Simulated scan of single mutants.
Amino acid sequence: MIELQQNNPLHGLKLETMVTELIDFYDWKILYAALRLECFHTNPSMEAAVKFLKKTEWARERVENFYLYRFKRMPKGSAAQFELKPRERGFFDGIMPRKPQELTVELVAEMRDKATSDYQEMKRNNSRPKYGKDKPRTQDAYAQNKRSSSNRPAPSQDPKNPWGN
C-alpha cells in the first residue's frame, strides 16, 4: 500500500499540518472565500477547523482537493482519478508539487464568477435540440467544437502532415 501512495502529497500528512500550511500561506479570509466553509469564517481557530474537518468528510475532501490542486498545484487527473478520494489518488513518478497559487479574495470571486458563467454556458449548449428541424447548422465538426479563445491553428488537411508543421 505504501508503494501505491508514494506519489501522493497527502500520504502521511496530518490534517492539522495541512490546515496549518494553508493558513500560513493564505489566511482565514482567503480560505473562506475559496472553500466556503464556516469553520474558516465564524470565529476561526485551528482547533475548531481541524475538529470540524475530522467529523465532516465532504468538507475534508474539499480542503484536500484545494491543497492538492491550488496549494501544491498537482496536475488534474482523469475522471477515474476523481472518483477516488483525494488521499487515495496517485500521481506519476517524478511529478513534483509546484509553488502555491497566489490568491486574493477578489481573484477567488472572479474565478467563481467565471466558473458560474462557464457552467451556465455549458448548460445552454447542452439544452439545445440535437436532432430534427431545430438542430443548428454548422460548417463541420471541427468548427462546432473549436474554442473561440484558442490560438491553435486548424488541423492540417494534408494526411502526410497531420500536425500542420
Rank of each mutant, 00 (worst) to 15 (best):
Q81E: 13
D134C: 08
K29V: 05
D93S: 15
K133S: 13
K135E: 12
L103W: 03
Q101W: 00
L15P: 09
W58G: 07
L22Q: 05
H41G: 01
A59G: 08
R89M: 13
I23A: 11
L35S: 03
K55C: 10
N151Y: 02
S127V: 05
T17E: 12
R87H: 13
R73V: 10
P129F: 14
C39W: 00
A79L: 04
F40G: 03
A34R: 10
V63W: 02
K85D: 05
K130M: 12
D93C: 15
A49I: 01
V19F: 04
R124S: 05
A115T: 06
P9Q: 14
S148T: 07
A141D: 04
D27W: 04
I95S: 13
K51F: 00
R70W: 12
K55W: 10
N7H: 15
G94W: 14
N65D: 07
T56K: 13
N7L: 15
K72D: 00
D113S: 13
G90R: 15
K123A: 07
E121A: 04
F40R: 01
N126Y: 10
V50N: 08
L103E: 06
M111C: 05
F25Q: 12
L13N: 08
A33E: 05
T116E: 11
E57I: 10
T104K: 11
F92T: 14
E38R: 01
E106S: 11
E121H: 04
T138F: 03
T42F: 06
L22S: 01
A49M: 00
R87F: 06
R36A: 06
E16D: 09
M74T: 12
L35R: 03
S117M: 06
T42C: 01
E38G: 01
N125P: 01
R98E: 15
D134F: 13
S78G: 10
M46Y: 02
R137V: 14
W28G: 11
K99M: 11
Y26L: 01
P100Y: 00
P100F: 01
T20I: 07
T20S: 14
T42K: 03
I23R: 12
R112M: 07
A79N: 03
Q101G: 02
R98P: 06
L10K: 09
L107I: 03
